[in-house]
């Protein structure tokens, strides 16, 4: 008898728990070059570019999510996970949503979250994606990408054109990217493993910076306060170099050793050129070390 009661309670509990999720399955017609904005506070967003001509949203939402609001028209569509408008929901209500959104490949995206992770792949239109603590990942060849996170990691793979990535404490990882690159962080690390790049700007306060890429006739401008900087450039690169550090060490595989900039004050620097000198390389730190290597 007692065993039966326990089983009954367990089944009831499972039924209640199962009700704590709402399933989502919605489609909308959108133009191939539509602008789509998406907002989800908690959970995850997976956005996939495909050859389909409509937008499809599938997934699950917590029971306390008020609704999945889809508004706008075929050229400009907005998707928002609407949650209760109070300040006490965190950790107490089920407001998370895990959504997979399939979109036509050529759309432009504006995606925003607080702690939800954002994963975008296969979209060739412009992408803007930001999160507070969620990770932001973009893969698959968009021409213009702007991604930012406060504490989440930011990652872009395979883009070209203009790539801008920012974080406060999260790592910034750019792999297989090309074109113009700008990455900024306060304490997160920046790692760029690029193809052919034009203009590159990397800036960190306390995080370390790693760059490897083929610079032709553009500029590579790196600034760091206390983070170490490691740069790998093709051995046959023709460039004008300026390396300078106030109290860090400089290792230079491309030219002469750095010397003290002023007889009476600390700081080392070196300026030199190689080959045709058509590219410009400038690396500056306050206390971080600089290592310049050939590959």
């Amino acid at each position: 008898m007692r065993k039966t009661t326990l089983w009954t309670l367990a089944i009831l509990f499972a039924a209640v728990a199962a009700r704590a999720e709402q399933s989502v399955n919605a489609t909308r017609s959108v133009a191939a070059d539509a602008t789509i904005s998406i907002e989800n506070v908690v959970g995850s967003l997976t956005i996939i570019g495909s050859d389909e001509t409509e937008l499809r949203v599938t997934g699950t939402m917590g029971d306390d999510v008020e609704e999945l609001e889809i508004s706008g028209d075929a050229d400009e569509l907005s998707i928002e996970v609407v949650i209760p408008d109070d300040d006490n929901w965190q950790g107490k209500r089920k407001v998370g949503a895990d959504l997979e959104i399939r979109v036509p490949r050529g759309v432009s995206l504006e995606v925003e979250s607080v702690s939800a992770s954002i994963d975008i792949s296969g979209v060739s239109g412009a992408i803007e994606a930001g999160s507070v603590s969620g990770a932001v990942t973009v893969a698959g060849g968009s021409s213009d990408v702007e991604v930012e996170s406060v504490s989440g990691a930011v990652s872009v793979t395979g883009g070209s054109g203009s790539i801008v990535a920012e974080s406060v404490s999260g790592a910034v990882v750019l792999e297989g990217v090309a074109g113009d690159i700008e990455a900024t962080t306060v304490s997160g690390t920046i790692k760029v493993d690029a193809g052919a790049v034009d203009d590159v700007e990397l800036e960190s306060v306390a995080g370390s910076i790693y760059f490897k890429g083929r610079l032709t006739d553009g500029t590579l401008d790196i600034e760091s306060h206390s983070g170490n900087v490691e740069v790998l450039l093709p051995a046959d690169l023709g460039a004008e170099f300026e390396l300078e550090s106030f109290s860090g060490r400089i290792e230079n595989a491309f030219g002469p050793a750095a010397r003290r900039s002023d007889r009476y004050e600390p700081g080392v620097s070196v300026e030199f050129s190689t080959g045709s000198g058509s590219a410009d390389v400038s690396i500056e730190t306050f206390s971080g070390n600089i290592v310049l290597k050939k590959y």
């Binding site: 929901w89 607080v114 507070v132 406060v150």
Partner: peptide
């Protein structure tokens, strides 16, 4: 709704 991780960061 800023979570603790984001605020701390």
């Amino acid at each position: 709704r800023l979570d603790a991780v984001g605020a701390a960061a």
